[in-house]
Amino acid sequence: GTREFLTFEIPLNDSGSAGLGVSVKGNRSKESHADLGIFVKSIITGGAACKDGRLRVNDKLIAVNGESLLEKTNQEAMETLRKSMSIEGNKRGMIQLIVARRVPGR
């Protein structure tokens, strides 16, 4: 299969303090324990991402509000996500996410 990159601008305003309504997890290599990035673990029903409807479980988070997560460790990436949701996200009333999604081959 191949991988496609998608950019979503998800409005936060209607969900107020509930944020994006998504839980994300860190994945790593079983053998080397090298960090392999942050992935969507679940999309909370009724949350902003659910209403927006485009995000999928297991999408890999590439960037948030224009800040790349790729060169970061999973922990640094989580911190970046937390920070962008709290201050920047709410100030802008929306969060911009770039995700990578595996597209199954024919």
């Binding site: 944020g19 839980s23 860190g26 290599s29 079983k30 999973n74 996500l81 937390r82």
Partner: peptide, 12 residues
């Protein structure tokens, strides 16, 4: 697959 969760989960 050679992938496992590293145990950290946060809600956004």
């Amino acid at each position: 697959r050679n992938l496992e969760e590293d145990g950290t989960v946060i809600t956004l």
